[in-house]
């Protein structure tokens, strides 16, 4: 039984990793190596691709910084709105809460890419385009349905006696949230935060339409811009280096927070 599992495991690993490893390989190749893949040539390996990416104007680090800043603001903003909303959903009449949860679930299914034009108009009317921090407003609204559903299911799992005991101990709502409820849903909150961060890190269409200033681009937009030119003239070596650098933070997040991500995704599935 155990032995015949190794082949499927190897296939799974190859399937998941091959495209990534090919990017990694490409990023260390000289242009000659890329165009003469099967021949023996003198200069096959290089760090030039990375040097080029890090030295470009604006430097690639800039996009990383933009994306991290946007990810953190979006995550915080989402939690600040979602935590009270989730608490409210647990406390209102069950049939109302159920209706709202169904609506939120429907919204979470909605392919948000269709919203870009109206959101662009909002950005234009309020003059908040080309502003990384303002971009976190639509981002957190887009993340909120799922965030609220996840946090609600975590709050519902807290035995009601705990909050009642806190009430009898004299804790008011703010104190109960701060000392009892929020610490108790910390695991769900961190899962939610990581999912929101990854969403923000990967989001493309809204960022594409809201940001035009080259200094303000997020990572996905900057990388897609490299591809903006024709199929044949894409500088693949430099591009691969960019994807490796852009993928690293997410790689780290997945490896460190594997448990939280999985529980976040599956909790959403089971209880949503």
């Amino acid at each position: 039984m155990k032995k015949n599992l190794s082949l499927p495991i190897i296939i799974l690993l190859f399937w998941s990793l091959f495209p990534l490893l090919w990017q990694l390989y490409t990023s260390f190749c000289t242009p000659e190596a890329l165009t003469h893949p099967l021949e023996i040539i003198e200069h096959r390996w290089t760090l030039e691709n990375y040097r080029q990416i890090l030295k470009s104007d604006p430097p690639f680090i800039r996009y990383l910084f933009n994306s991290i800043l946007l990810g953190i603001t979006t995550t915080l903003l989402t939690l600040v709105f979602s935590l009270p909303a989730a608490y409210g959903l647990v406390k209102i009449k069950p049939y109302k809460a159920k209706l709202i949860r169904i609506i939120l679930f429907g919204i979470a299914l909605f392919p948000y890419v269709l919203l870009f034009l109206a959101l662009l108009e909002i950005a234009r009317d309020l003059n908040i385009g080309n502003n990384i921090l303002m971009l976190s407003i639509p981002y957190s609204a887009l993340s909120m349905p799922l965030a609220i559903l996840l946090l609600t299911s975590a709050l519902k799992d807290i035995p009601s006696e705990l909050e009642e005991a806190a009430k009898l101990e004299g804790l008011n709502l703010a104190q109960r949230l701060k000392w009892i409820l929020i610490p108790l849903i910390a695991p769900a909150t961190s899962s939610t935060a990581i999912l929101v961060f990854i969403f923000s890190w990967n989001e493309y269409p809204i960022a594409l339409t809201w940001l035009s200033n080259p200094d303000l681009l997020t990572l996905p937009v900057a990388i897609a811009r490299i591809a903006g030119s024709s199929v044949y003239s894409v500088p693949y070596g430099a591009y691969a280096a960019a994807t490796v650098l852009g993928a690293l933070p997410v790689l780290l997040i997945v490896i460190i927070f594997q448990k939280q991500i999985i529980s976040g995704l599956t909790q959403g599935a089971i209880k949503g």
Binding site: N202, P220, V234, T243, I261
Partner: peptide, 12 residues
């Protein structure tokens, strides 16, 4: 977890 745009270019 990886950005779609990143891997889209990878596939290309």
């Amino acid at each position: 977890a990886l950005p779609t745009t990143v891997m889209a270019l990878g596939w290309r």
